[in-house]
Amino acid sequence: MSTTLELTPVTTAPSGACCAPLVREAADAETARELAHLFKALADPARVQLVSIIAAHDGGEACVCDLTAPIGLSQPTVSHHLKILVEAGILTRTQRGKWAYYALMPGALTRLATSLTDAAA
Score class of each variant (00 low, 15 high):
120 A>E: 08
34 E>H: 10
100 A>C: 10
85 L>C: 01
115 S>L: 06
10 V>D: 06
55 A>V: 08
43 A>D: 12
95 Q>V: 12
106 P>K: 02
51 V>A: 07
11 T>K: 09
6 E>T: 13
110 T>N: 12
71 I>Y: 06
82 L>S: 05
121 A>M: 06
81 H>W: 02
30 E>Y: 08
80 H>G: 10
65 C>M: 12
47 R>Y: 00
48 V>T: 13
63 C>G: 12
31 T>K: 11
113 A>Q: 13
28 D>A: 08
59 G>A: 07
4 T>A: 10
61 E>W: 01
13 A>K: 12
74 S>P: 00
94 T>G: 02
15 S>C: 10
89 G>L: 06
100 A>N: 15
90 I>L: 15
38 L>W: 12
48 V>Q: 12
95 Q>W: 07
81 H>V: 05
13 A>P: 05
41 A>Y: 05
111 R>F: 02
79 S>E: 12
91 L>I: 01
86 V>W: 04
103 A>K: 12
115 S>M: 07
82 L>T: 01
75 Q>V: 14
40 K>W: 10
46 A>E: 05
72 G>P: 08
68 T>P: 03
119 A>M: 08
33 R>D: 13
111 R>V: 00
73 L>T: 02
40 K>Q: 11
83 K>Q: 13
112 L>D: 02
97 G>E: 01
16 G>K: 00
111 R>M: 10
100 A>M: 03
107 G>I: 03
71 I>N: 05
94 T>L: 11
107 G>R: 01
26 A>Q: 14
109 L>R: 06
83 K>V: 07
110 T>P: 01
33 R>I: 13
113 A>C: 07
42 L>Y: 00
17 A>G: 08
39 F>Y: 13
45 P>Q: 05
3 T>D: 14
42 L>Q: 03
71 I>D: 06
28 D>V: 08
86 V>L: 01
51 V>I: 08
59 G>V: 05
8 T>E: 15
30 E>G: 11
42 L>T: 02
43 A>W: 04
15 S>H: 00
71 I>K: 06
119 A>F: 09
79 S>T: 06
19 C>G: 08
116 L>D: 07
64 V>S: 15
62 A>L: 06
14 P>F: 02
56 A>V: 04
38 L>Y: 05
8 T>S: 09
38 L>N: 01
81 H>A: 01
54 I>K: 01
82 L>C: 10
97 G>C: 09
76 P>F: 01
101 Y>V: 04
70 P>M: 01
109 L>Q: 03
34 E>G: 04
88 A>C: 01
39 F>R: 14
43 A>R: 09
114 T>A: 00
76 P>C: 00
61 E>R: 15
36 A>G: 02
30 E>S: 14
90 I>S: 01
102 Y>W: 05
112 L>P: 00
36 A>T: 14
115 S>P: 03
3 T>S: 11
37 H>A: 15
94 T>H: 09
75 Q>D: 12
25 E>P: 08
84 I>Q: 13
111 R>Q: 14
121 A>Q: 13
6 E>M: 08
96 R>T: 11
104 L>M: 08
49 Q>E: 15
57 H>K: 14
65 C>G: 12
37 H>L: 12
105 M>A: 06
109 L>E: 04
110 T>I: 08
49 Q>F: 10
121 A>K: 13
52 S>A: 14
104 L>N: 07
23 V>F: 03
3 T>N: 14
9 P>N: 10
50 L>F: 04
88 A>T: 00
79 S>R: 15
93 R>K: 10
29 A>Q: 09
87 E>T: 02
45 P>M: 06
25 E>H: 10
7 L>H: 11
